[in-house]
Computed example of a mutant assay.
Amino acid sequence: MTRKPLLPQHSRYDYVPLPERKDYAWPEGKRLAFCLTTNIEWFAFGAGMGHDPAKTGEPQTHRNYSWRDYGNRIGIWRLFDLLDELGLPAAHNCNSLVYDYAPQIMDALRARGDEVVAHGRSNAENLRGLWEPDEERILREITETITQREGAAPKGWMGSGAYETSNTLDLLKEIGYEYVMDWPMDDQPVWLRTKHGPLLSVPYPIELNDSQVVIHRKQDAGDFCQMIIEQFDEMLEQSVKHPLVMNVSVHPYVFGQPFRLRMLRRALKHCVDHVGRDAVWWTRPRDVAAHCMALPPGVVP
């Protein structure tokens, strides 16, 4: 007699432990893929959702709006300079409304050749509670906006707040997305099942995410930067056995602050100047996804 499951589960992916997976390499035999992903977001004034620098659940006021807007006015430009200084490529989770309110930012990242990852319309809202037709309308609006402005459809999706509904993955695959970064369950890409075929999950961090560390957990910026160093050193060693993805998530209104930027520079320089850097693929999520999609079936779990 078959024993019935005791807990609600999902069918998006199977449990495949790391030791049971097939080996592969990144381009040129690299073993660690390093991605730096910023979050470029626009918020409603005095309405909707959004982080507060004081405590969770504070009302939307001029204070928290302008604190976050610092990232668009000042922080992101300092991060662009830092990326140029270190010669690092980057991806940017972008709200589609940034095209309307701060087009200079989108022009700058386009000039850098960086990746635009679709990140909702605004982080003042998310997809929770939407009926499927309403969600589809919003997803298509976002996709069309990016496609028109960039001349090509976005390859990847990162939900506002990483929130989804039970229909999101199916709709994203139907619309044409190749990967998502909402499922932080792995250090390797993993295929997700949808009604319209497989959709790749590219690793994106909850842990190595400045929003989680500095804002939610109230840890010091130095803690976050030390986490980058420890993560890099350990994953570089671990990647000898398994190809891995190290993705670092940064918000311009957090690490665009000068005192934090200085610490971030030191942490990233540790990675870039590391004696083992030749084993690292300095890349973007879309390139990780493209490489995985070109591998023989069954290699990526």
Score class of each variant (00 low, 15 high):
Arg277Gln: 15
Thr145Ala: 05
Val254Pro: 02
Gly113Gln: 08
Glu144Asn: 04
Arg137Glu: 15
Ile146Thr: 02
Glu178Leu: 01
Leu200Thr: 05
Tyr179Trp: 12
Trp183Thr: 13
Cys225Leu: 04
Leu200Ala: 10
Val272Trp: 11
Asn209Asp: 15
Arg149Asp: 01
Val98Phe: 02
Cys225Thr: 14
Pro5Ile: 06
Glu150Pro: 00
Ile229Asn: 09
Gln226Met: 14
Pro285Thr: 13
Val190Gln: 12
Phe43Ser: 03
Asp84Ala: 09
Gln148Gly: 00
Gln231Ile: 07
Asn95Lys: 01
Asn39Thr: 12
Asp278Pro: 04
Leu88Asn: 11
Gly71Met: 05
Leu127Arg: 06
Met1Lys: 08
Leu83Pro: 00
Leu295His: 01
Pro154Ala: 03
Gly197Thr: 02
Leu32Pro: 12
Gly222Tyr: 00
Trp282His: 10
Val98Ser: 04
Ala33Tyr: 13
Leu171Gln: 09
His196Met: 00
Gly46Gln: 07
Asn167Trp: 10
Leu6Arg: 08
Arg110Gly: 05
Ser160Leu: 00
Thr2Asn: 04
Thr147Arg: 09
His242Ala: 13
Asp187Arg: 15
Lys30Cys: 15
Ile206His: 15
Lys195Pro: 02
Ile215Ser: 07
Asp23Phe: 08
Ala289Trp: 06
Gly161Ile: 09
Val202Thr: 11
Glu164Tyr: 05
Lys241Gln: 13
Val214Tyr: 14
Pro27Gly: 12
Lys55Gly: 09
Pro53Gln: 03
Ala44Met: 09
Glu20Ser: 15
Ile228Asn: 06
Arg140Met: 05
His62Asn: 09
Arg68Gln: 06
Glu132Lys: 15
Phe80Ala: 03
Arg266Ile: 06
Asp14Tyr: 07
Leu200Phe: 03
Arg266Ser: 13
Gly161His: 10
Glu178Pro: 00
Glu132Phe: 02
Ser249Trp: 04
Gln60Ala: 14
Gln226Cys: 03
Arg110His: 12
Glu234Asp: 15
Pro198Phe: 01
Arg78Gly: 13
Met49Lys: 08
Ala267Asn: 07
Pro53Lys: 04
Pro189Phe: 08
Leu127Pro: 02
Asp23Gly: 07
Glu174Thr: 01
Met1Leu: 07
Leu264Pro: 09
Asp233Tyr: 12
Trp131Phe: 08
Leu192Gly: 10
Gly71Leu: 11
Arg112Met: 13
Arg137Lys: 14
Leu172Tyr: 01
Tyr24Met: 12
Gly159Met: 06
Arg149Cys: 03
Ala279Leu: 14
Glu41Asn: 06
Arg284Trp: 03
Val117Trp: 05
Leu139Val: 02
Gly46Trp: 08
Glu237Tyr: 05
Tyr177Ala: 01
Gly50Val: 06
Ala124Val: 05
Gly159Val: 08
Ser249Pro: 06
His274Leu: 12
Glu132Met: 07
Gly50Asn: 10
Arg21Cys: 11
Arg12Ile: 08
Arg78Met: 02
Pro27Arg: 09
Gly120Trp: 03
Met1Asp: 08
Arg217Asn: 14
Val116Asn: 00
Trp183Ile: 14
Pro252Gly: 11
Trp67Lys: 12
Pro243Trp: 07
Asp114Ile: 05
Thr2Arg: 07
Pro154Met: 05
Asp114Arg: 04
Tyr70Ser: 05
Asp182Ser: 11
Thr168Gly: 04
Pro103Gly: 02
Arg110Thr: 13
